[in-house]
Design a protein around this nucleic acid. Sequence first.
DNA 1: ACAATTAGTCAGACTCTCTGACTAATCTGA
DNA 2: TCAGATTAGTCAGAGAGTCTGACTAATTGT
Lengths: 143, 143
Amino acid sequence: MADVHPALLMYLGYRHTENRVMAELAEAGFDDVTLAQARVFQRLAEDGIRLTDLAEQAQLTKQSTQFLVDQLEQAGYVERRPDPSDARARLICIAERGREAQLQARQVENAIRREWTRHLGKERMALLTELLQDLRPLVDPFE
Amino acid sequence: MADVHPALLMYLGYRHTENRVMAELAEAGFDDVTLAQARVFQRLAEDGIRLTDLAEQAQLTKQSTQFLVDQLEQAGYVERRPDPSDARARLICIAERGREAQLQARQVENAIRREWTRHLGKERMALLTELLQDLRPLVDPFE
DNA sequence: ACAATTAGTCAGACTCTCTGACTAATCTGA
DNA sequence: TCAGATTAGTCAGAGAGTCTGACTAATTGT
């Protein structure tokens, strides 16, 4: 069947990457992060993010996000700092252990990038990335 | 930041499509399907599939899959038939209401395909699909 | 200054997913 | 051939994840 929807193919690529990252994180000792936690963690920005914004990006309610961030904080992956611009808000930042996990995750991501590049060739891999980027305005609610 | 991982871009495309399908299904009256149910339903083959195989493809335990299939069956989206080749097994098939929902979902998918094609152009859309297909052996555990 | 909005929290219910223990049918090899 | 191992599915219970609703405190706008 040649007529598989591109979105399904995208899903396969994403799922494969997520699986690999989770597996290798666990192997590297980060075996206390759940998938749900990782999906939230993944969206943390370098300079911190508010719970509400994080929730919106993760497509979760802020209560659900809070539940997961609490666990990430408990486990040392994340810390909350006061938001200097708003006393109600707090900025969720990557903490020490989170930084280490992030490094590990990036290595897996890079490995996958290399595998895909080796398979497609450098040109076509660049093309794929470019095409996906082009599609972004249509599919990314934050762009 | 130009260096977003292609897998993340893939995720955005998939999530957008899934969101759209779910929203328009709900609008068309199929508002009793949950996301978890839909993700299982999506994997049903024309000639039926066994619970165990469905579970493997959905990356769930067979107990979880059973839980969701039971609900889909209750709601008329799915029916179970005996498997002629194995008296232990049953084939999970698409039922009447499921057929209707599938039709609706396909229309949304086709609409998205058209939108993407309009945005990228016919050539580049074909190229994207081809590149994603090429990647499939690396990312699809069933290929 | 005060009403409306926004950021976050708390509590409780419901959905989803898992592990473990089980039955029945099928397969395998001595 | 037939007894043990495997496979397909089920049942029960626990745990994780997600939601809605009600709330407090800070900020914004008029």
